[in-house]
């Protein structure tokens, strides 16, 4: 491992100043469970490591029935599974976090890390996008909000600019029911070969609003708008549900890799989207 400078800022301004000074060439460490693997394997050779764990501005966790949820980037997966607030208002986030890694890793790994590492299989991305979550990005000179659906630009890549940090995620008040289903060969300690989040809001026996978001089957988490449109305004009969599941499978572009063949991922998308919709009824 090459040597690096190590910083532990105590405030957001201090953290952003260091990032700006280093022209963005500092690796941000929160939980560290992704970064340290890459450093150990010489995939990343950071000149500086910026430990943001002591930055209080990244620790928001509050709910307001008009504004929704503010959840800071430093919130650990363990916090998500335990927080009464999350469990009551956004149970899908607690259950998605609980499907990841192990108890030990969940004590370290953070919401911000899961999103900023931008893995196509990140388990928190599909349910958050299905909930219409917004990412708050800050730099020394600006603060901006962007729909999480537009945050990811490719495997390991996001819209984050040099000098910018993900501060928190804002999730609107929950509308309808949301489900996240993950398919992986092992029940625990495994990465999704397909993830599917579905949110359905019904009124008068008809689907008013739908969200279908897939993980691990495209370069980024994938929102299937054509599938959503096939549900909206309809009574959700098994025929309508099957059709949306089929559209979802046709819309994704999975790769074949060590975890799964592309054809199998497509088949599983169809199954998971159907079950996901059924789980919200």
């Amino acid at each position: 491992m090459n040597s690096f400078d190590h910083f532990t800022p105590a405030t957001l301004t201090e953290a952003l100043s260091i990032l700006a000074e280093r022209n963005g060439n500092a690796s941000i460490i929160a939980g560290g469970t992704d970064l340290l693997l890459r450093v150990k394997n010489h995939i990343v050779k950071p000149a500086a490591v910026l430990n943001v764990k002591r930055v209080p501005e990244l620790r928001a966790l509050s709910f307001d029935s008009n504004e929704g949820l503010r959840v800071g980037a430093l919130t650990t997966l363990r916090d998500l599974t335990r927080s009464p607030l999350i469990r009551d208002c956004y149970p899908v986030l607690a259950s998605a976090a609980g499907l990841m890694a192990s108890e030990q890793i969940r004590s370290l790994a953070t919401l911000g890390g899961n999103l900023c590492n931008a893995s196509p299989s990140a388990d928190l991305a599909p349910p958050l996008i299905a909930l219409d979550a917004v990412a708050c990005l800050v730099s020394l000179s600006s603060e901006r909000q962007i729909p999480l659906a537009e945050f990811f630009t490719g495997p390991g890549r996001s819209v984050l600019q040099k000098g910018e940090l993900l501060k928190e995620i804002i999730v609107p008040p929950p509308q309808g029911k949301t489900a996240y289903l993950k398919h992986s060969p092992r029940a625990f300690m495994d990465i999704a070969i397909v993830g599917a989040a579905v949110r359905i809001q019904q009124q008068g026996g008809k689907c008013q609003q739908a969200r279908i978001v897939l993980g691990a089957v495209a370069p980024t988490p994938l929102r299937v708008r054509s599938g959503e449109e096939s549900l909206e305004g309809q009574t959700l009969t098994s025929e309508v549900i099957r059709q949306a599941a089929k559209i979802s499978a046709e819309s994704c572009s999975p790769i074949s890799d060590v975890r799964s063949a592309a054809w199998y991922r497509k088949r599983m998308v169809e199954v998971l989207v159907r079950r996901g919709i059924e789980a919200t009824l």
């Binding site: 190590h6 560290g32 469970t33 693997l37 490591v49 430990n51 764990k53 370290l108």
Partner: peptide, 18 residues
């Protein structure tokens, strides 16, 4: 695995400096 601040963690995946 050790327990840090009351939570079980994999100590190999933590920078001590943090």
């Amino acid at each position: 695995t050790v327990i840090v601040n009351g939570q079980p963690v994999t100590s190999c995946m933590m920078l001590a400096a943090d």
